[in-house]
Amino acid sequence: MSVFRIELTKEEQLRYISHLDYYNLLQRAIRRAKLPAAYSEGFNPHMKVSFASALAVGVTASAEYADVELTKDICQPEFFDKLSAVLPAGMRLLRVKKIVAHQHHKSMNALADMAVYAIQLPENVHSDAVMTAVNAFNATSEVLFLREKTGKGNKKGQVIKKIINIKEFVATDLQYDTANNVIIVNIKVSSNGSIKPAEVIASLQQKYLLQLDSNNILINRNALLSAGKNFIDLL
């Protein structure tokens, strides 16, 4: 048995697929690569692949992380080459590191504490207006936002409303790169929940009356970190 940690991309071609679809895509690629994947027991065996964090539909990522368990021990270059050869367009393998048996690894999900997002704004926004809104956002301690979700399970069909303070989940000041028209936001990730980058934009629109077409922004997750390190360097 062996476990490999992989770092891979979710690029433009895959922007609109869900986390589950992305997971299925990787799983089928592992099968095409004929890597000796490990499966759970039972009627409905599942491939033992675990992701660090789920990514929303519409968001690309410079680096996603997954742990892949195999039934046999193979060498790192073999793993890398076999998987790289079969990945679909928009999914590139960047790095692979074998997790050594004595490295008792916690689930990445529990370790992740920060996500860095780059939000590309539409071409037609006024950069002065963005700057003003960003500065006001950074200056205050509280940005309340009404989150509406449609319920699942026994709350199906209901709209669940909750007021959250966006600032609680933002680790550092928003940075606005005027040359590229991009906002960088560092979002805290924890078991107490988190926020979506789109909610930061929505709060800029609502509280600071920033005018923009929210369907026309492009979000990328630049990094996912644990104590300031990415998950490959963490090993």
């Binding site: 071609q13 519409g58 679909p88 369907n215 026309n216 922004i217 492009l218």
Partner: peptide, 21 residues
Amino acid sequence: ISPAVLQSVSKPARYTGGEVN
């Protein structure tokens, strides 16, 4: 197809192609 169009409809991956095979 611009993101502004794709991000305003349900299941945009229906319209973007590029699938394996």
